[in-house]
Design a protein around this nucleic acid. Structure first.
Lengths: 142, 142
DNA sequence: ATAGCTGCAAATGCTTTGCAAGGCC
DNA sequence: GGCCTTGCAAAGCATTTGCAGCTAT
């Protein structure tokens, strides 16, 4: 067992990145940053990252993983991807249209079909087909 | 106050629509369909529709509203719109790229920046600005 | 020394489920 | 009559919160 050892081999890089972002490089944050950024582009959820941390012997609570992911997002180290509905919105407009979504008040506004064009959609991975292409234009108040 | 009266004035139309879709036109479904489809395009959540139903004096349980909205969606009377994250996915790729999302296993795959182009995005409503434009290509297994 | 972090457990909010009673064909 | 629906209350899940104790600077 290697529990207790530093999980990564380049914690300094992670530390520096955190410092630059204005975050205190705590053991937990360094370990999570190391997991996130050592490998190339990747997608994680709070749970999956928590699992990885445990797997490399780093004790972190799930709550801290959530905090850390949000902090990293705030300082621009990560991006969030929205693909599953937390709250279900239903639309009586069945056409192939898109939406403005006001993140502050949750308001949804139609963008009529034919206004927005999406081009260059690549072929889907083998064995799959495109069910639909969702476009959400997120807006905020000035 | 008109509480207690039939909420809609064209329940027959709603009834017919339900029958065509293969759904039994129960009092609750007719009332909800009537609320949904009488007016033009609209967006609702389970809660907002439940509130409307109560407001016009129709007793429906929230569970039934959920069931009904899902059934309507299955038969193509409604479309779901995904704008809020139920489960948070975080991406270490900060570029302006898009994603394939496999609805069956939850897998997320990057579509490299520069592959997809979105054109014709209209000006945002007054007093707002575009924070970002999300594109999700939803795929299913063949 | 001290402001900031972490971890635990309880709480939250939306959605789903199980099951008995009721309604539509 | 028989199968589908409804309604209630309890359960489920991911995420958030409150607070006491710990830690980096």
């Amino acid at each position: 067992m290697t529990a207790g050892k530093t999980p990564g081999m380049e914690p300094e890089k992670a530390s520096a990145r955190l410092r630059t972002a204005g975050l205190r490089p705590t053991r937990q944050r360094v370990a999570l940053a190391d997991l996130l950024f050592r490998q190339g582009d990747r997608h994680v959820t709070a749970e999956s990252l928590h699992g990885e941390a445990k797997a490399v012997g780093c004790k972190v609570s799930l709550a801290t993983v959530y905090n850390t992911l949000h902090q990293f997002t705030e300082v621009g180290l990560l991006q969030q991807v929205v693909v599953e509905a937390a709250r279900f919105y239903f639309d009586t407009n069945l056409g192939d249209h898109q939406h403005f979504y006001d993140e502050e008040d949750g308001a949804l506004t139609d963008i009529p079909a034919g206004t927005i064009a999406v081009s260059g959609v690549p072929a889907p991975p083998e064995g799959t087909q495109i069910a639909r292409v969702d476009v959400v234009v997120r807006i905020t108040r000035n």
